[in-house]
């Protein structure tokens, strides 16, 4: 009896966490998967929701747009972050900590405030647009923030601080002595990074890639505020299915959520394959 009581006490410590995880993680997830295979009327198994997604151009375009902006902003962001982290990695003292504060501040500058700041900057009556009109600088004067390509700049903006902060520690893995040794053997800087530096850092870089990808994929506030429904993106479409002003279709929304989940899982799987390749390289 005493033992039983003790075990009960231990389980009680688990209860709060178990409650949250069971009722707000597992049950909803399972119910979402089930719902995606049901008619919205609630009866009968169907694959209709998925068939619709892959047949109707509206959803295909949403998937395509999402993939385009996510992948491109991740790659561009990662390249900018890589060189920035490289430039920062050898810095020390006050200069570096000042730059880090800037990165920390801007990494929290996201969502609606960030979009509003960019509207002030580049929107139809944005400061830069007005200035460019006055001085006759056409490329900026006709900048269209309310489009997929226009929004791209905001996506890159929020990828920079996050990616750089994540990449900085991986630069510590590349030791100064290696660089010196390579230099002694007449390897140029570019060759050192391509053949030694980047492969050593690859696990860290791929991890950062994952984070940036997930970050861009789940971005909702920016497209919702700027283009809403004129350009369809997966997150906006999913939310519309549940809380939209038009007819709500939870079945289709669940199916779209699963598509988004699959995109993340495929991406993580691919980077893991890559990672394993490079990790094998370091062990030899």
């Amino acid at each position: 009896m005493k033992n039983f009581k003790k075990a009960g006490g231990r389980i009680a410590f688990f209860l709060p966490l178990a409650f949250i995880i069971l009722f707000f993680e597992c049950v909803p997830l399972v119910s979402m998967i089930v719902k995606s295979f049901l008619e919205d009327s609630g009866s009968g198994f169907t694959l209709n929701n998925f068939i619709q997604i892959f047949q109707k151009p509206a959803y295909l375009v949403a998937i395509k747009n999402t993939l385009w902006i996510t992948i491109l902003s991740t790659v561009v962001g990662l390249i900018i972050d890589f060189f920035l982290a490289m430039a920062l990695s050898r810095d020390t003292g006050k200069k570096k900590s000042l730059y880090l504060s800037l990165l920390n501040l801007t990494s929290n500058f996201s969502g609606v405030p960030l979009s509003i700041a960019f509207i002030t900057l580049l929107g139809t009556a944005g400061v830069f647009v007005l200035i460019s009109k006055q001085i006759g600088f056409t490329p900026l004067a006709s900048y269209n923030l309310y489009s997929l390509k226009g929004m791209f700049i905001i996506y890159v903006y929020f990828q920079i601080p996050m990616g750089t902060l994540l990449l900085l520690p991986t630069f510590d893995k590349v030791r100064k002595e290696w660089k010196e040794a390579a230099r002694l053997m007449n390897a140029r800087s570019v060759r050192f990074w391509l053949q030694i530096g980047i492969p050593v850092m690859m696990p860290g870089i791929l991890g950062t890639f994952n984070m940036l990808f997930a970050n861009a994929l789940a971005t909702y506030a920016t497209p919702y505020l700027l283009v809403n429904n004129s350009i369809s993106l997966l997150p906006v479409k999913i939310v519309d299915m549940f809380v939209g002003d038009v007819k709500q279709r939870p079945g289709l929304g669940s199916a779209l959520s699963i598509v988004m989940l699959l995109i993340v899982m495929i991406e993580i799987g691919l980077t893991n394959l890559c990672k394993r390749h490079f990790e094998r390289g370091t062990k030899r």
Binding site: L17, I21, F24, E25, C26, V27, P28, L29, S31, M32, K35, A214, L217, A218, Y220, P235, I238, V239, M241, F242, V243, P250, G253, S254, S257, M260, L261, V264, M265, I268
Partner: peptide, 25 residues
């Protein structure tokens, strides 16, 4: 086990958690 369940939300993003909870309850 605890680790697995605590880290799942980092794969399924906030939008999916929110819509699935809303749809369920």
């Amino acid at each position: 086990v605890v680790q697995l369940f605590c880290l799942i939300p980092s794969t399924i993003n906030g939008i999916i958690v929110a819509t699935s909870v809303l749809g369920t309850y």
